[in-house]
Write a protein that binds this DNA or RNA. Structure first.
Length: 196
DNA sequence: CCCTGATTCGC
DNA sequence: GCGAATCAGG
C-alpha cells in the first residue's frame, strides 16, 4: 500500500483528532503503526497541536560513528494536549445524576452478571463526568464486537435497543477503558460503615 | 504485558 | 520516501 492522497488525508485527520498511531494504522489498513508514525514525522506534524513553535536552531553534529552520549538539550516545548475540559463547575451538592436516564428502573435481565453498574452513590464526580463524556464518543459496540481490548462497559438498557458497549480501547488488561475503570473499581470507601 | 510516540537506518 | 527495528517512556 502506498500513501495516496486520501490515505494521507485520513492520516492527518485522525492524527489531529488525537487518534493513536495504531488506531490510524488499523483504520487505514495495510500499514503498521510504525508506518503511520514515520509518515507523520515526514509530514512534519508530529505535534498534534496547531503549529510547532519551531526553530531552535539546533545544530546537530553528525558524528559518524561513536555514540552520542551528550543529549544536548533544548527540547521544543512538547505536548500541549488538547484536553477540552468541560469542567464541572458550580454544581450544587449532593445529587450525582448518572446520565443513565430511565434505564435502570427497567428490568435488568438477570442473565449473566455483566459488569456491575455502579450504584452511583459516592463515586467521584469527576469519574462520572468523565464517563458521561466518554459515552458520547463511545464506539457503541454490540456484544459480539467486543474484544479483549475493547471496553466492555454496558451503556443503556439491555431491554431496549438503546443498548451498547463502550468499546473504547482498554488501557491494559482491564476490561474497561480508562474512564470506566474509574467507576468500576471503586476503592471501597463509603460503604464500609454500613450500619446494620 | 499492554500500550504510546520517537528515532534510526537500510532499502 | 518508506517502514521495520529499536528506543524510551507510561
Amino acid at each position: 500500500m502506498s500513501w495516496t492522497d486520501e490515505r494521507v488525508e485520513t492520516l492527518k485527520k485522525m492524527w489531529n483528532e488525537g487518534q493513536s498511531a495504531s488506531q490510524i494504522a488499523k483504520e487505514l489498513g495495510g500499514v503498521t503503526r510504525n508506518a503511520v508514525i514515520g509518515k507523520v514525522h515526514r509530514l512534519g506534524l508530529s505535534n498534534r497541536t496547531g503549529v510547532a513553535p519551531q526553530p531552535s536552531p539546533a545544530p546537530q553534529p553528525s558524528a559518524a560513528s561513536a555514540q552520542p552520549s551528550a543529549p544536548a538539550a533544548a527540547r521544543p516545548e512538547p505536548a500541549p494536549q488538547p484536553a477540552p475540559e468541560p469542567a464541572a463547575e458550580a454544581d450544587e451538592a449532593e445529587d450525582a445524576p448518572i446520565p443513565m436516564s430511565a434505564a435502570r428502573r427497567a428490568i435488568i435481565p438477570a442473565g449473566q452478571p455483566l459488569p456491575p453498574q455502579p450504584s452511583a452513590n459516592e463515586i467521584s464526580p469527576e469519574a462520572l463526568a468523565k464517563v458521561s463524556e466518554v459515552e458520547k464518543g463511545a464506539k457503541k459496540l454490540t456484544l459480539m464486537e467486543l474484544t479483549e481490548k475493547t471496553c466492555k462497559w454496558p451503556v443503556g438498557d439491555p431491554a431496549t435497543d438503546n443498548f451498547w458497549f463502550c468499546g473504547l480501547p482498554t488501557q491494559s488488561g482491564k476490561p474497561y477503558c480508562e474512564a470506566h475503570v474509574g467507576v468500576a473499581f471503586q476503592p471501597m470507601s463509603s460503604r464500609r460503615d454500613r450500619r446494620r
